[in-house]
């Protein structure tokens, strides 16, 4: 079935309903359980919770859920874009080294003892942006950006930063090491509305621009030469989308840490079900990526009664086996 406006709207609506349900469920789960009916009433403006419950709902859980949704949406959309541009179904949004650069920056911030937001986030963001600049400079040929060089540069840069991160971890002997590991696996434990205000515009602007290029992405996913013959300004589109998406992903990483698997499996799952037309795939990834990460973060809260499990642990544990199942079923 091809992507018609009608099908895009219908699919998006369905996924939006799922997202809302996951959000509401997620509001109720945590160290302090909230009643679903009470939460629903609060959403509709009727006060049904005690003061403590409302603080938990609006000050702690809601920002955490919304931020998880924003990050999940960005990672899934980023995965779709990178997979199409690099024509590599195994590409994930961190493949250009953004995670390594941002992680290195974040750890320096943590070791200096700065607050997570904006302090650590700011250095992480700078680290991510620096990596993008580095990669683009490395992959720049005389006429065009070579995707293979780009992939290799990303792998090398990530390996380099991993080593640098391991070095910093090795020489750190105190409690800060715990914060470092938590950051590296991704964590929404201390989310506030400030992070949401920071990240929201990146998703909004980035997604609108990416969606406008959806048809070009269809062609790029088949091949750069095909895209050129069908009217795409290949080099311009590729460069703009790579930079735009990387910046968006950097912004997400710097407030959430490195959450793997979302950007890899969400695009895959949706492609298996919906096909490859990016006009459908992009909005679907945004909504389903958000739902998936919110759901995983809910599990992270539900699994341990004391302490916090980094959400990246859940995405990998849930995502891995599910992914293998899908691959096998698809092949057979």
């Amino acid at each position: 079935m091809r992507a018609t406006p009608h099908r895009i709207l219908a699919t998006s609506f369905l996924l939006l309903v799922i997202l809302i349900v996951v959000c509401l469920l997620s509001f109720t789960v945590g160290p302090a359980e909230l009643d679903l009916r009470a939460v629903l009433a609060e959403m509709l403006g009727k006060s049904r919770l005690v003061e403590m419950g409302r603080t938990i709902l609006f000050r702690i859980r809601m920002p955490r859920v919304l931020l998880g949704g924003l990050v999940g949406a960005i990672l899934a959309v980023g995965g779709v874009v990178f997979q199409a541009l690099l024509r590599n179904p195994l590409a994930e949004p961190f493949i250009l080294g953004v995670s390594g650069g941002a992680g290195f920056g974040a750890i320096i911030g943590i070791l200096f003892g700065w607050a997570l937001f904006p302090g650590v986030s700011a250095v992480a963001f700078v680290g991510g942006l620096f990596t993008i600049g580095l990669i683009m400079a490395m992959a720049r040929g005389r006429f065009r950006i070579h995707t293979n060089t780009l992939l290799l540069s990303g792998v090398i840069v990530n390996a380099f930063f991993s080593a640098a991160i391991m070095f910093l971890i090795s020489v750190t002997k105190d409690h800060r090491i715990h914060n470092v590991f938590h950051w590296l696996m991704g964590d929404f434990g201390l989310s506030t509305f400030k992070e949401i205000l920071f990240l929201g515009p990146f998703l909004l602007v980035g997604f609108v621009l990416i969606l406008a290029a959806a048809r070009s992405l269809n062609l790029m996913a088949i091949g750069e030469e095909t895209a050129l013959y069908l009217g795409v300004q290949v080099e311009y589109v590729k460069k703009s989308l790579l930079i735009l998406t990387s910046v968006m992903v950097s912004a997400a990483v710097c407030v959430s840490g490195i959450i793997g698997f979302v950007g890899l499996i969400i695009p895959h799952v949706l492609r298996l079900v919906l096909g490859s037309d990016h006009r459908l795939l992009l909005p679907a990834s945004l909504l389903f990526g958000a739902s998936f990460l919110i759901f995983c973060d809910m599990l992270a809260r539900a699994v341990t009664s004391q302490g916090e499990l980094p959400v990246g642990v859940i995405t990998a544990i849930c995502g891995g086996p599910f992914f293998i199942y899908l691959l096998r079923r698809h092949r057979g």
């Binding site: 091809r2 997979q83 199409a84 024509r87 030469e225 013959y229």
Partner: peptide, 28 residues
């Protein structure tokens, strides 16, 4: 591209596109 079309030597299809979707790309 509105005036010139090319049939290149075979390109692999890494992503699931249907025949109709691919032919419709000629209209882009």
């Amino acid at each position: 591209a509105q005036k010139m079309a090319m049939v290149s030597q075979e390109t692999p299809f890494d992503f699931p596109f249907s025949v109709l979707e691919v032919v419709l790309m000629g209209r882009y």
